[in-house]
Write a protein that binds this DNA or RNA. Structure first.
Lengths: 257, 257
DNA sequence: CGTGACCTTGAAATACATCAAACCTTGTGG
DNA sequence: CCACAAGGTTTGATGTATTTCAAGGTCACG
């Protein structure tokens, strides 16, 4: 609880998004030994079914800054994220981007292809990732043969809906500092409640998530660093004053304290 | 296409939300003759199944301003909206409300009770409504017996997700006038693309949907009325200048034109 | 015909965006 | 290995969109 060890691997920060050819080393392409099978879509499927799959999924290793698929493109596969962080974004008519969800280990993306024809988002890796690519025809067949899968899909959709609802609630009811503080605390919780966590979002991206400009995000970070609420080093955020951040996430504003 | 007849019933505007006792006349409680069966959850179920249901659903007639269920309350039933408009809201920690979805004919609500224990939203009628109340145990059993139902549920979840994503996109990337104009055009489309449509939202509620204050909403309405873009009478909105609104929904601002 | 809910309008305050420039940091090529 | 280039971050000055506060106006209903 109090001051545990530092978390995971400090995901290396990307510079400019490389064109990123899928460096797929095919190390272990066996679904039965998939490290995320427990949390993945197939968690509910019995062993014999997973055996029978004959490894329909393709393992991929991608660098940070790689676009997996684009909003509006014809959907041909769904993906499971085994490790790393991915952002799902949409672009408004005025050209501004909105991050709608941040995906981490175990999350599924692209499954909307089961319902419609096109992807609803653009999926971009924020760190190097390991993912599992599942062609939609395979998934459709599995869905038909094993109704359990539908339940798993339903559960995921429900979670996704709640996440986006939380986002809309934040965007519609809170001000800049509140949104940013709330996000930092959320991200901390999502990363194991450690006092430190990797933050693979640039200031611009943080703004795209929270409906703010780069400058506004930067100003609050700077302000909170000066106050000693947090510090940052090599892409790792350290939260020193959770209480202050919790208060900020509730109501306070920069100039009022 | 051009200047068609006026649309539906001018839903009477509520004054203060009555405590609203469920005036349920039980006129026709037979699911087989349900006017929205085609668009409802059971659209896919074969006739014999619907027959066998033995009318598990309860028909309700509610006045405007009635709270169907509250965020956080134990979920015991799902509902199908046969007629009228309902808002789904959540309240932020600071007490401000956010409308997350507006439901119309055929929409389903409260199905999150299938996955979790509590309702995620507060559901409030904005007009008099006719709804169908479906106890969750019944729905769960149907779900187990007829996997088709899962597909229907999945489809609905997918639509809900897209709607909320659209909202988040609006809230995160656009400014007041753009959001309001976009919403008016959206609402027009949802009401049959007629030049006129009932708007069962108060200024306050419109603000709660779009992340704005009453005053801001009122000012834009006033401004656009003065410009002749629209007019309003007895809760009915008439859009006179779609082009202007479309431009506004894209980029323009009040002071800049 | 008064009362309560809702809507409008104005003036002032403020939060955030925009514009502009300097500063870091990190990977790269000489 | 150094220095530069490029992307990202910080900071300041200024503008403006939107909120906040306050008051008056309208409409429907009892």
């Amino acid at each position: 609880m109090l001051g545990a060890e530092d978390p995971a691997i400090p995901h290396r920060r990307r510079k400019h998004a490389l064109p990123g050819r899928p460096v797929a080393p095919q190390m272990d392409n066996d679904c039965r030994r998939c490290p995320v099978r427990g949390v993945s879509l197939f968690g509910d499927l019995p062993d014999e079914v997973v055996f029978s799959l004959n490894n329909p999924a393709e393992h991929l290793d991608l660098p940070a800054g790689h676009v997996l698929y684009r909003e509006g493109a014809a959907a041909n596969a769904a993906f499971t994220l085994k490790d790393g962080v991915i952002k799902l974004t949409r672009t408004a008519v005025n050209g501004r981007d909105q991050i709608l969800r941040l995906l981490t280990r175990g999350d599924v993306m692209g499954a909307e292809g089961l319902m419609g024809l096109a992807y609803n988002h653009t999926a971009t890796t924020l760190t190097p990732v390991q993912i599992c690519r599942l062609p939609l025809p395979v998934l459709k067949q599995l869905q038909a043969e094993h109704p359990t899968l539908n339940h798993a899909l339903l559960a995921r959709w429900a979670v996704a809906l709640q996440q986006v609802e939380n986002l809309a609630l934040e965007l519609g009811t809170k001000k800049a500092s509140e949104r940013l503080a709330t996000f930092l605390l959320y991200w901390r919780a999502k990363n194991g409640h450690y006092p430190s966590m990797p933050l693979p979002l640039s200031r611009t991206e943080t703004g795209e998530l929270l409906g703010l400009t780069v400058e506004t995000v930067s100003r609050f970070f700077a302000d909170w660093k000066r106050r000693g609420y947090l510090s940052e080093k090599a892409g790792i955020i350290h939260l020193h004053n959770l209480e202050a951040l919790e208060t900020l996430s509730g109501s306070e504003s920069l100039s009022r304290i």
